Simulated assay, not measured.
Amino acid sequence: MSAPEPLLSVQGLEKHFPITKGLIKRQVGAVRAVDGLSFDVVKGETLGLVGESGCGKTTTGRLITRLLEPTGGKIVFEGNDISHMSQAHLRPLRRDMQMIFQDPYSSLNPRHTVGAIVGAPFRIQGVKTEHGTKKAVQDILELVGLNPEHYNRYPHEFSGGQRQRIGIARTLALKPKLIIADEPVSALDVSIQAQVVNLLEDLQNELDLTYVVIAHDLSVVRHISDRVAVMYLGKIVEIADRTSLYKSPMHPYTTALLSAVPIPDVKRRTERERIRLQGDVPSPINPPSACRFHTRCWKAQEVCKTVEPPLVELLTGHQVACHFPENIPQDENTPRHESSPQDAVAADARPATGTE
C-alpha cells in the first residue's frame, strides 16, 4: 500500500536575513535562521517542531504560511508550489492554511471587539454564511469554549487563556486544513495550558485538522504530536514518531534535550542521567562547519568537522543526521549510515553527567 500524499511538503527550505553596513546598506553577512529543512506532513497528523530558542522554529512557521519570503527551497501545499507565489494568488489558499500566534496579548487588536477579530477572515475573504457573520462567529466562540455573549467585548476584558481561545477561534473561522501553532501555550499558566492543548486535540478530531506545533516544552509536544522533528541551528537533526523518539533518541542533541525534561517523581528524577552540554549555542551568522552540533557534542570526531551528516532513515520512520547515532539496535539487518565510521571509534564517551 502506497504512502498517502502529503498535505504539506517542505524541501530544502532556507531563510537568510541579510546583515547590512554603511549608508549604501552593503551586505556583509547573513543570519542563517533556516538552512535546508525537508519534511512532509500528512493530512490529519500533528508534527511537533522542537528545539532551543533561536533555532529557527518560528521562522519556519512563518515561512510555511508565507508570512516571510523564503530565500531558497520549496513549499508545496496540496500539490501547489507556494514558495514564491504572489499575494494575490495566495489569498484563496490562506483559507486552508492558518497560524496560531505565540502571544495572545499582542496578536489581538485591542481596539477591536471579539466579534470584529473573529469575523475578520469572513470579511477579508468575502465569505458569506447562511445565517450571517455574527451567528457564525458566535458558533465558533462556543466551539472553543467561550460564551457567545462575548461577541461585543474587547480583548482586555479576558484572561490569557481566554485570549488564546479567541486567537484559535479566529484561526478556525474559515475551517482551514492546516494550522501552524507557534508556541500556543507557552504564555499561559500550567492549568490553562492543559485546557488549550485538550481543546486543540478535540478540534482536530472534530474538524479533521492537520497541525504543525512549534514548541520548546517537550512534555506538551509528547502529549499532542504524532511525529516530532528536532531542530538545531536552522537544521533538522532528527525526525521520528513520538514513541520512538522519546524512548530511543538517536541524535546526541535529542538525548541531551530529553534529559532536561522535568520529572515530578523524585525517585525517577534522582536515578536519571542528566546530560549538561558544554559551551553556548553558536551564532547563526557563522555556524560551525559540517555538523553544527560538533562544538558541543561528546561523540564528535574529526569527520564531524569536515563532512555534514545527511538526514537519513536508520530505522523505519526514524531519520537522523549524525555520524555516530545512539540507541541503534544491534541487528545485522539494520541499515547503517553510509558515511559513518565504525561505532567503536565513537565509543560511548559522554560529557560529565549528574543527577537532578
Rank of each mutant, 00 (worst) to 15 (best):
C297I: 12
V307D: 11
R165Q: 08
N286T: 15
F17Y: 04
H84L: 13
K299T: 13
L218T: 04
L90C: 11
R272C: 06
L146Q: 12
L93N: 03
G145A: 08
I64S: 01
R276H: 09
L245A: 02
V41K: 00
I328Q: 08
I24P: 00
S225V: 04
V281Q: 12
A260H: 03
W298H: 14
R222C: 01
Y105L: 15
R350G: 06
I24W: 15
P309E: 01
G61I: 00
L93F: 02
T113R: 15
P264T: 03
N286K: 08
P110Y: 15
E14N: 10
M231K: 01
L203P: 04
S107R: 11
A321Y: 08
T60R: 01
G12K: 10
E332P: 07
G279C: 09
L174A: 05
V345G: 02
R269W: 06
A181Y: 14
Q204C: 06
R123C: 00
Y105A: 10
L90T: 05
G54I: 02
P252L: 10
T295V: 15
A321E: 06
H216M: 12
P351H: 09
T270I: 14
P121D: 00
D280A: 13
P92Q: 03
G22I: 02
K25W: 05
V190E: 06
R95D: 09
H156F: 14
A116E: 15
E271G: 06
N198Y: 07
P4V: 08
G126K: 05
E338T: 10
